[in-house]
Amino acid sequence: METREATPAHFLIKIESFSLLEKCGIDKYETKVFAAGEYNWRLIIYPNGDNTVGEDCDYVSVHLAMADTSSILPANFEVNVVFSIFLFDQISDNYLPSLGITRRFHGMKSEWGFSKFISKEILLDPSNGYLVDDKCVFGAEVFVIKKEAVTECLYLKDVDIPYKHDFKISNFSKLQAAWESEKISAGDQDWYYIFIIKGNGKGAGRSVSIFLHSAAPPMSLLLPPNPSHRVSCRMRWKALTRKLQ
């Protein structure tokens, strides 16, 4: 199992008479409150395991719980955190961490943890260094995930029949710069095409360039532009050839 030297960032608790918890019938110990990520928390230690693993089990369970949820936080609160629980190895002077897990704390579920944090067999063996002279140290790190994500919505409109438009350009060979089509409607949007006769960009001088433009409705000219409003489309062109008589 991997260990680390750094002390847990947010909380430590030293239990000096661990065996007395069981002798005194203490099945659940709640630590004092500590702060992390603008919220209050506490560790809950179950010397004989929590309810999910049954009574008199062979594991010690350790949970993280939010404190003062009824008096401070709103009824619909929701906090997402990444947290780890630690156990101090007093021989190697290192900490044994749990795998960091991500959980959502809210009014219906304000406590999460590890039902099988460590087996009693490993904990009670003095050669492992976790329980020495009936003393052990637990720790915790809690990192709150702030809601700063950028959101995006993709709306795809089902179109059964593709839109088809035919254009006839008279005297094409006499055009010098560009030709602009009349306005067309497709997919609840107004559009128009621009033909660059002598090409544009990499096609300059070698090809005819064709661009599709969105024609904004008159009302939109009175409103500020919305950078999150995007319309996706696909177009296909086919040039018809005609034999000269």
Rank of each mutant, 00 (worst) to 15 (best):
F195K: 04
S181I: 02
A6H: 14
N76K: 15
F211H: 14
I45A: 06
D27K: 07
V142L: 09
K14W: 12
I13Y: 12
M235Q: 04
I184R: 00
M235Y: 07
T69I: 06
G107M: 10
S207C: 15
I197S: 04
F83W: 11
K183D: 00
I44C: 08
S170P: 02
A6T: 10
T52Y: 03
D166M: 04
A75C: 14
P227I: 01
S127P: 11
L96C: 02
E121W: 10
H213R: 15
K168V: 00
L131Q: 03
T3H: 15
I85Q: 01
R236F: 08
V231E: 06
D68R: 14
M108V: 04
S61A: 07
H106V: 05
L96H: 09
K23F: 13
L87C: 07
K238D: 00
D56Y: 10
K168E: 09
G107L: 08
N171M: 04
C57W: 08
F167H: 03
A67M: 10
Q189A: 05
I145M: 14
D27A: 09
S170H: 04
S228V: 04
I101C: 05
K164F: 03
T69P: 05
K135G: 01
M1K: 15
N40W: 08
S214Y: 12
P225H: 07
D58G: 05
F114C: 02
C136R: 07
G25Q: 12
A140R: 03
S84K: 02
E5D: 15
H229S: 10
G201I: 00
G201M: 04
P225F: 08
K198R: 13
D27V: 04
G205I: 11
L99C: 12
P225D: 12
T52V: 01
F88R: 07
P227S: 05
T151M: 14
E2Y: 15
Y46G: 00
F117T: 00
G100P: 14
S173L: 09
L175P: 02
C233E: 12
L87E: 01
N128H: 11
L123V: 02
A140D: 00
K202R: 14
V159Q: 14
T102F: 15
K146N: 14
L244W: 08
G25Y: 13
M66Q: 07
V208I: 09
N94A: 09
D58L: 08
P126G: 00
I85W: 06
S207T: 12
A216T: 04
Q245A: 12
H106N: 10
V53W: 06
I210C: 05
K183P: 01
N51C: 03
I118V: 05
R103W: 13
W112T: 00
I26N: 09
K109H: 11
I161W: 13
K23N: 15
N80A: 13
N200K: 11
A177L: 13
P47R: 08
F86T: 01
I169H: 01
A177K: 15
I45D: 00
